[in-house]
Amino acid sequence: MELTLDILSFVLMTTGGAFVLIGGIGALRLPNVYTRLHAASLTDTMASILIIAGIMLQAGFSLAAIKLLAILIFLLLTGPTASYAIANAALLSGLDPQCDGSTVGAADGDDESGEELRS
């Protein structure tokens, strides 16, 4: 029983570490802000869930486990809000979300069509 829990938590933590790395690579490889947000949300949600769940299995039922759960819930509640704030601010500043990989770095944050996008 002890051993299965240990193995499960090791598997969870290593896959979590792998997802963290993949998200970091994605944040460098993907072409613009909107696509990079997806890589960031990969590390924010999947990796956080896996790593903290893995540590919680190691901690057992204790004060530390409850604190870890609080950290996880807080990360999962605020992560999307921060992502939405970044995406919405980029949209309002006039970065075109439709553009694909062909226009890497072409839009550098000038605010011409900002307010029209909203209406």
């Binding site: 909107y34 947000l37 997806h38 949600t45 999962l76 939405y84 995406a87 949209l91 979300p97």
Partner: peptide, 22 residues
């Protein structure tokens, strides 16, 4: 938040009952 939370989809704008999702 649920749409943003799942990787691969991000909510860009919520305005007047209309969602814009990337």
């Amino acid at each position: 938040n649920a749409i943003t939370l799942s990787p691969g989809t991000v909510t860009l704008d919520v305005y007047a009952d209309r969602l814009k999702v990337h």
